[in-house]
Amino acid sequence: MGLKNDVILQTVTKVAVFIILAFSIHLFIGGHHNPGGGFVGGLAVVSAFTLLLLAFDLKSLRAGLIINFEILAIVGVLIAVCTGMSSLLFNEPFLNQIFGTINLPILGETEFATAVIFDTGVAFAVLGTALSIITTISEDICKWRQ
């Protein structure tokens, strides 16, 4: 990969990535009551990284992201399943969720739900899976070109 002199794409990417990442957080948080959630939020993050990958190259993406994607995906699913399992401890049905509101200093009345933990797991799983697929394919292309 690596279009070395693509100044426009690289400059736009540097700005756009932050906008996409911010939007993905918005999607993730909003997912509890509105369209969005862990799955879509995770995918939006992946799209930011894919843009980086296209504008720069795999090496620089890897240098910035030191996490092992496969392990990230596994940990994500583990978080999701364990959140679901935790309701078994309280003798509630599997995947049951509870929520409550807490008065925070700046944000005011804020709703907290256990489903958010589950969603975090989903987001990690999506992120890890999609990124490992994308990086594996682009590694293959690099090898093939050589």
């Binding site: 940990v75 583990l78 399943v81 399992m85 599997f94």
Partner: peptide, 19 residues
């Protein structure tokens, strides 16, 4: 709640093994 265990036990152990 026992009903879900045949599904969750292999899933959890599969994930642990992958780690």
């Amino acid at each position: 709640n026992f009903v879900v265990l045949p599904l969750v036990i292999p899933l959890l152990s599969g994930l642990l093994m992958a780690l």
